[in-house]
């Protein structure tokens, strides 16, 4: 564990807490893409298949459980909760995310560290996570204005993978056999996808104005 990875995990945890805060405090999920939440639930379920077989550390196990439980809780809440579900922007959240699942799975079959069930699903979860934010970014683009908590949620969600890139650079230089190139390339793509969001987020922060995405 290094400071970059710990900062990344904490940033990721903060993004989840901000999302939960937004939904429970405002009893609304407007501006949140259910499709992105479903993709993230799938990412965690397919990435942590080794949850009960490979014990890494208490921290690792607890964080995996938190990520799986929180992503499923948000999906269930957005689908079932009678008050929250009414605020879901159903007609704006129309990204065909099944294509993202299919593309990630095909790529995982072609490019993986080892052609085993666990490794293919791990690579699938890595590729899918890079693309999972797309429905959310499209939804924000369409809805134009971004409320503070939603903006902070997406900001921290994007920032966490940037910390992981620093972590991979650090581990590359400090550990002999470290090669996590699938996660690294995918993590770079993931972070770049946030580039324009980060730009408009910074502009709104600098002008102390409400965040506006160009229609």
């Amino acid at each position: 564990m290094n400071i970059f990875r710990f900062a990344g995990d904490m940033t990721h945890l903060i993004s989840i807490l901000v999302l939960l805060l937004k939904i429970y405090a405002t009893k609304s999920c407007s501006g949140i893409s259910l499709k992105t939440q479903e993709l993230y639930a799938l990412v965690f379920l397919t990435r942590y298949l080794d949850l009960f077989t490979d014990f890494i550390s208490v921290y690792n196990t607890i964080m995996k459980l938190v990520f799986i439980a929180s992503s499923l809780a948000v999906v269930c809440c957005m689908r079932m909760h009678r008050v929250v579900r009414r605020s879901y922007d159903k007609d704006l959240d129309t990204f065909r995310h099944y294509f993202l699942i299919l593309a990630s799975f095909v790529l995982a079959l072609l490019v993986n560290e080892k052609f085993t069930f666990q490794e293919i699903f791990w690579a699938f979860s890595i590729y899918l996570e890079a693309l999972a934010i797309l429905p959310q970014l499209v939804l924000l683009q369409r809805s134009g204005n971004v409320d503070n908590l939603t903006g902070q949620y997406v900001f921290f969600l994007g920032a966490y993978r940037a910390f992981y890139i620093l972590n991979w650079i650090y581990r590359y230089f400090t550990e002999q056999h470290f090669s996590r190139w699938i996660a690294c390339v995918s993590g770079l793509v993931q972070t770049v996808l946030y580039a324009d969001f980060f730009y408009y987020y910074f502009i709104s922060w600098k002008n102390n104005a409400k965040m506006q995405l160009p229609a």
């Binding site: 995990d9 990721h12 690792n60 995996k64 560290e113 992981y164 056999h177 470290f178």
Partner: peptide
Amino acid sequence: SKDQVAKDEL
């Protein structure tokens, strides 16, 4: 196994 570096990251 050694060659399959355990996935120690989240």
